[in-house]
Amino acid sequence: MSLDPLPLCLLFSSALFCLGLIGALARSNTILVLLGIELMLNAANLNFIAFWRYGPATSPATGVMFVMFSIAVAAAEAAVGLALIIAVYRHQKNIRLQEANRLKG
């Protein structure tokens, strides 16, 4: 394995992404699935920063900008997702994903 920082960063972020993927696929609790998705988003952010630091020189803060916007979107996503979870729970007293399969209340 090469010891360059950039491939290491990329390996780190892809490992984190796959962890999030496994979590989102394997667990049936909605909150945990949401957490897995958040982790995947974070892994994408890691890539932005890694390429900003070691990638080709573009305008000085583009990678940082991307991560800022992505963090904002992630925050919005978490708020809406958890509000949805609370709404689903109020409806069927359970937040297992398998049981949230009715379109009609």
Binding site: D4, F17, L21, L25
Partner: peptide, 24 residues
């Protein structure tokens, strides 16, 4: 899920290790 995740990681890892980043 673990098999899927591992497969994705394998693909990504091989891609990263095979790529030469020098043109960056």
């Amino acid at each position: 899920a673990v098999i899927t995740g591992m497969a994705v990681f394998g693909v990504l890892g091989v891609a990263i290790l095979k790529t030469s980043f020098t043109r960056f």
